[in-house]
Amino acid sequence: MRSSVALWLRVAFSRAMIRVLATYGDPLWIVVNVGGPLLTSIALAFLYKFAGIPQFTGFAILGGGIAAYWGNVLWSMAAQLNWDKRSGMLYLYISSPAPLTALLVGMSLGGILGTLPSSLTVLIIGTLLFNPPFSPPTLALALIFMLTLLALYGMGIALSSLYLILGREAEEVNEALYEPVSFLSGIYFPSIGRASPLPLAIQAVASLIPLTIGMDALRRAVFFSEGVGELWPSLLTLAVMAQASIILGLKALNYVERRGRVTGDILVALR
């Protein structure tokens, strides 16, 4: 028992470490990861400012900080096992005693740590340029931020199993998901609630995405100083979503592994 726990921790730690090292070892990746969300944030912040709704500039800056994570979840979590399969790395993982759950959790932790500087860069530059009215950090903000990331990366784990089955189409699904989910979840504007310009039916659909709940709660904590007392329904929803997606993802992964050993084409790209 102790040795399995030790192995699990070693695998998760080493995968996180490698993810961080690989992220910082590729300067181009950092440019892309910071540059994309930063430029979008700045463009939208200018738009809000000149449209006469300067209070929304903060939404755009905050959205840029979180968009880096959303990109990381899709491209470096959900699609990762599929890429590993195509490059043969998944074979190496499966033929070792390393638990896949540890690899995925390590990948998530590494992704969170690796994306943190990109996210902070967007927030710092955006704040310096537009000086949006942020409230001081609170416990509610920390909780929401953690639960949002947990739910997001849980979604990444669930998608990674699905993408293993999809094969090459995974990248197209990612492309297809990125913009609509970014839009629906209201990364740069309130997509749910009273300030949302979207019809109720679309708001209902958008609320199924953990990022929507997380963004809405983050905005309320950062710009309207709401605390745990007001935000508990969002915190609870995020906690349930995180737990459900992680459990679903890990179960799906176990299924995919078992099924892959039967069919022969899920875990390795047949040449």
Binding site: L7, S14, R15, L21, P97
Partner: peptide
């Protein structure tokens, strides 16, 4: 580091 990573898969 790559070799270290793979060694960790075996504990």
């Amino acid at each position: 580091r790559n070799l270290w990573f793979f060694s960790q898969l075996y504990g």
